[in-house]
Nucleic acid binder design. Sequence first.
DNA 1: TGTGCACCTTCCCACCATTGGAGGGTCAAC
DNA 2: GTTGACCCTCCAATGGTGGGAAGGTGCACA
Lengths: 150, 150
Amino acid sequence: MNIGEASKATGISVKMLRYYEEIGLVRAALRSYSGYRVYSDKNIAMLRFVRRARDLGFQVKQIAALLDLWQDAGRASADVKSLAMDHVRELEQRRRELDEMIATLEHLAHHCHGDERPDCPILTGLGAEDEATQKPPRKKTSRRSFAVAG
Amino acid sequence: MNIGEASKATGISVKMLRYYEEIGLVRAALRSYSGYRVYSDKNIAMLRFVRRARDLGFQVKQIAALLDLWQDAGRASADVKSLAMDHVRELEQRRRELDEMIATLEHLAHHCHGDERPDCPILTGLGAEDEATQKPPRKKTSRRSFAVAG
DNA sequence: TGTGCACCTTCCCACCATTGGAGGGTCAAC
DNA sequence: GTTGACCCTCCAATGGTGGGAAGGTGCACA
């Protein structure tokens, strides 16, 4: 199997197959006499594993760890589970952030007429103060400054 | 106000303030005689708007569009709402993808003993065939991690 | 035997948003 | 006059991914 076939078989683009090899995520593929990469069924199985992990949002470093465990017959399933659950917690964190964004935006949009008039709570909401920006009141310490055109 | 103060006032790092200027998201700040950037209250308000939009997951290009609308007294609120709702739909799409990942991982992890034994449904699940592997390389959708304000 | 096309190779660039650091100037206080 | 906190610009790296140039290879068909 050459790289194009491997790409179709795994769902990983040709570019990424070369990239994964380059960064050492997977061992370099064997080469044909003329320098073409040659993939075995075993390679393909491993790459499919990689793609599935990728689809589940694992980063390349985590996939490397998973691959190590995959290939280690003496692994403890606890190690795998722990890695997976760490990742779940990270995904959940991201989801919470998304939820917050969506809720805020929907709230703002809900109060916006959405017609030809210019007044829009979305924009005023975005322009509004919020506690994150309320650091110090900072009464203009007036660092003297000669404005030069910009 | 110089850049450090502007950073504190807006919650945008000094690096990013310079970057936003460089890419033209915001107009270049005026300069003091010695070349320091000088920020007015109006600048600060605009930058706060930018930070809030960024916190809501808008990309820089979208923020540019929002800024244009913000400053256009004759805008139609429908345009703002449409932009916001497009973004909501994108966020919801990302959330669906996250949900799917989480559900799959939790399902796999649920069946894993998580002890010292090596057999682990998480790994076998990742190694398993699936119909997705029969398809051509996926077009990106979710892999953008949009770090939420730090 | 040539021609053509699809495929392969390496190498470099761009993207997005952000951080880090080097090397050097400025400001204010002590 | 030194010190330290600030500021400047420029360059590089991150993480995955795609785009494309410049050139070699494999194979089918005339």
